[in-house]
Amino acid sequence: MEWSINLQLFAEDEKTEKATPRKRKKAREEGQVLQSREINTSLTLLAAFVLLFLLSSHYGSTMMNVSHYVFDEFMLGDHLFTIKNIQALTLTLIAAILIMTMPLALVVLVIGVTCSFLQVGFLISSKPLQPKLSKLNPIKGLKKLFSLEKVMELFKSLIKIFLIGFVIFRYITSQLGTIFSLMEREIEQSIAIVSQITLNIGLRAGAVLVLLAVLDYYYQKYEHEKKLKMSKQEVKDEHKQVEGDPKIKSKIRQKQMQISMRRMMQEIPKADVVITNPTHYAIAVRYAPEQYAAPVVVAKGQNLVAQNIKKIAEEHGIPMVENRALARVLYDTVEIGDLIPPDLYEAVAGVLAYVYQLDSKQMKEARR
């Protein structure tokens, strides 16, 4: 018996259920979102090398102009090494560096922000930055260091190094002839060839990183869903928090039914007639032409409630008319406080006419 209870508790604590929308929203507010940093890194690196490839001629001419200014005009020219001239040289170099790096920096920034936005959306959360004393626990730190997540990160890093190293090695071996011939070429040609080889290496490495980033995204998605999974008990507890405890809700419904029943019973003395089944159903109907366009049901009930309706009607001298079919139809189709539907006007009007005729006859007999 004890074993079966423990197994049941273990099954309830096992996280097998998908995360609810409320759990996902709470996790997002705490900064726990699906995001692959590999996508940001790979696309940023690839974009940087593509931009370098497209602007390589511009960068080359800019560097040549800067070198010409520094060596030909400044160092070999008539410029004196005064503080003013050195400041002017420094400002020129800074301006040239900014002109060269600003497009690259802007592209990298836009790519990084766009990748994060496409993965996460607009999210501002300070909770991940809040200090937690649990992070200072050395035991938890060691467990996290040797956890399966860290092992997978190490495995991914090794795969990344191996694939990128393999691609770069294959490319360099194919360019060995060109590399060995650099000694025989002019400096400008050598710089152009080295720049081209470097750009090709970057583009190939970036392409490999993009491929690995796509795989990493699906892995991160799997891990994210796994972390968000809930146990059956957690789902039950959340349902109680959102919908309320079933026991409390049952008591509230019971209280509401008692209040509505009390109000209904208070309306019975205002009725003109009670239509019965005769034992199972009782419907109290009131007709007030100055208030309603048609007769209205002020109370209805079945079995014990029907008996209470008839008892109150008898105490207040309200006539009761037996009409099995009409009583059943009114009970099934008309709610308390609703007007009689047009298709039942004739039947209810007949009952009310009978009651008014009966009241008139009783009044004449009373006068005699």
Rank of each mutant, 00 (worst) to 15 (best):
F146R: 03
G60T: 11
S116I: 06
D72N: 10
V167C: 11
T333F: 04
K156L: 04
I179K: 04
L326E: 07
A325C: 03
E186L: 02
K229S: 05
A299W: 04
K23E: 13
K249R: 15
T62C: 06
Q35I: 03
L54T: 11
T16C: 01
K270Y: 05
D245N: 15
N40H: 01
L45A: 09
E238F: 08
T114W: 14
L228E: 00
I318K: 15
V194Q: 13
N200G: 11
G337K: 08
F162K: 03
A284V: 00
Y59C: 09
I161A: 12
E314F: 07
K226C: 02
Y281H: 13
Q233T: 10
L133C: 06
L339A: 09
R24E: 09
I139W: 12
H280E: 13
A325V: 10
D72E: 09
S4H: 15
F155P: 07
E17Q: 07
L89I: 00
S61P: 01
K364D: 06
L215C: 09
D272H: 07
V151K: 02
S360Y: 12
R24Y: 03
M230P: 08
E315Y: 02
L212Y: 01
L358V: 00
D245F: 13
S61H: 15
E2I: 08
E314R: 10
P289V: 05
Q302L: 12
L326I: 12
R185T: 15
G77W: 06
T82S: 15
E365Q: 14
E267H: 05
F180P: 06
V329W: 08
P269I: 08
G317D: 09
E2C: 00
Q307R: 15
P131V: 02
